[in-house]
Amino acid sequence: MLNKLSSIILLLSVSLSAVANPTCHGKVSGVSISASGSVYASVSNGGSTKFTDVVFCNLNKSVGNYNGESCKGLLSLLLSGSAMQKNATLWFQSASFNHCTQSWMELDKIGFYHIRIDG
């Protein structure tokens, strides 16, 4: 009985934490890399989401939740999304997040931790 109750509480806490974290959605475009290895892109939906030339990660050092190796995977996702004109969903930690409109800044400053290229 205790195991079932523990499992239910764990499931509820995971579900509630996923719901509480804000997301932003929009089309990926303008993927670029600076000389220092910063990976930039824009994500916009023409409305509430407008990230313009923001830093997602850095190929040479850790930025937020992404180290150089995981940044290569993120760059691949961004390039694929841009080439296929797909939308992306970005997740943020609610404690750091303020809104889905930013320009020329590092997304880790507002709690970016996950991205999905939408089908």
Rank of each mutant, 00 (worst) to 15 (best):
G37L: 09
S7C: 09
I9W: 11
T23V: 14
W91E: 06
D108N: 12
I33G: 00
L77W: 00
K27P: 00
G68E: 02
S13T: 14
L11Q: 05
N87R: 11
G81P: 03
S32F: 08
L59C: 05
K4V: 06
S82E: 12
N21K: 07
S38N: 15
C57N: 01
P22N: 08
S17R: 11
T101V: 10
V14T: 12
W104N: 13
E69S: 04
S29Y: 05
M105R: 10
T52M: 12
F112G: 01
Y40V: 02
G47W: 09
V14N: 05
R116S: 09
S82Y: 07
H99A: 07
K4P: 00
H99R: 09
L2S: 11
A35T: 13
N60A: 06
F56A: 00
L74P: 01
F92L: 07
F51P: 01
D108F: 15
S29P: 04
G37V: 06
S94Q: 10
H114E: 13
S103H: 12
L2I: 11
Q93V: 13
R116G: 00
I117S: 03
I33R: 04
L5K: 12
L78I: 03
H114Q: 14
A20T: 08
C100S: 05
I115N: 02
S34I: 02
S42E: 02
Q93H: 13
N45S: 07
W104L: 08
L78E: 04
T101Y: 14
V14S: 08
T49N: 00
L59A: 05
S38G: 00
I110S: 02
S6D: 13
K27M: 15
L59W: 12
I115E: 02
V43C: 02
K27L: 15
Q102F: 14
N67G: 07
K72V: 06
S29I: 04
S82C: 05
K109I: 02
Q85Y: 14
M105N: 04
A88G: 00
L75T: 01
H114R: 13
I117Y: 01
N21E: 12
L2D: 15
H99W: 08
G81D: 01
G30T: 10
I110Q: 12
G46A: 11
S48K: 12
E106G: 12
G26L: 05
M1I: 02
T49R: 03
S96W: 14
Y113H: 09
T101M: 10
